[in-house]
Simulated assay, not measured.
Amino acid sequence: MPAVPRRPSPAALLTEPPRAGLDVAALAAAWPLLAAARRGDGHPVLVLPGLMTGDPATAVLRTALRALGHDVSGWSLGTNRGPTGRVVDTLRARLERLHRTSGRRVSLVGWSLGGLYAQELARAAPGSVRGLVTLGTPVARPAPWVRTASAIADAGAHLLPGAAALPRPWAQRGSLRVPATSVYTRADGIVHWSSCRYEVRARRENVEVRGSHLGLACNPAVLWLLADRLGMAEGAWAPFRPPPGLGLLFPRRR
């Protein structure tokens, strides 16, 4: 059974910025290693940012994935301020367009709140989605703080036009019928790691990395894992296994 989700510690929250700086420094040192990562097959990949961030926050991640042969798109919607009607409609239309124009299913990568969007897109249109990877996203249920957030959002829905157009991600409406990987760090100061773990079942997994929440999009372990997950042939999903020599980047604690 997954652990009961909790809130991050104040210390973890306060140290997020400097620890994210360490993740960036680690990436600079590990960048040459990415040349040996699994290559992509050119299928479309849509990357969704976290709350109050935008495409600049995922620029390094998208650059690395393009260098590995992936056809990567940012979300192109400015700052992520929540599931407004514009966000919902645009993401649904973009997923459909990427699928239609490429003739291939789309992989979704979502960071924090962006991961909740990715789940909802995958639930709504599983035929268009090849798989998804979430980074520091509260995918577990039930989480007390998430229920509180839901109540607040519902109470203030009239203040945010279009918010009701997207099913509440924390409501877990419908089944998730595509392969899904949740990446988390126990040092996360924004979302407690216990909220970021799926109940393990077929084609669903949790992978722990070392680092901060704010640094997940430039964490070398995350980039290696994304290359591995996105580089798998469609229909050939298998659980992630760290390569020899990189095991320290992926703790195996339960």
Rank of each mutant, 00 (worst) to 15 (best):
P2I: 10
V4F: 09
P5W: 12
A11W: 14
L13V: 11
L14W: 13
T15D: 12
D23I: 08
L27Q: 09
L27P: 08
A36N: 07
A36R: 12
A37W: 06
R38T: 13
R38L: 04
L46K: 00
L46N: 00
P49H: 08
T53V: 14
T53Y: 00
P56H: 14
T58S: 08
T58D: 09
A59F: 01
R62F: 06
A64K: 02
L65M: 10
L65Y: 02
R66G: 03
R66D: 03
A67Y: 01
L68H: 12
W75H: 10
S76Y: 14
N80S: 12
N80A: 13
R81N: 11
V88P: 05
D89A: 14
T90M: 00
R92M: 00
A93C: 01
H99Q: 04
H99N: 02
R104K: 09
G110T: 05
W111C: 00
L113H: 07
G115P: 01
Y117V: 11
Q119N: 06
L121F: 10
P126K: 05
S128W: 10
L132D: 05
V133R: 00
T134A: 06
G136A: 07
P138Q: 11
V146K: 06
R147V: 15
A149H: 01
I152A: 06
A153C: 01
A153G: 09
A157G: 15
A157P: 02
H158N: 07
L159F: 12
L160A: 13
P161N: 06
A163N: 07
P167T: 14
W170I: 03
Q172C: 07
R173C: 01
S175C: 07
V178E: 03
S182L: 11
V183R: 07
V183I: 14
Y184C: 01
R186A: 10
A187H: 12
G189R: 05
S195I: 03
S195V: 05
Y198W: 15
Y198H: 15
Y198N: 10
E199D: 15
A202Q: 15
R204S: 11
N206C: 07
V207D: 05
V207C: 02
E208K: 05
R210F: 00
G211L: 08
L216V: 11
C218S: 03
C218D: 09
C218H: 14
N219E: 08
W224A: 03
L225S: 05
L230N: 10
G231C: 09
M232D: 11
A233S: 11
A238H: 13
L249A: 15
R252C: 06
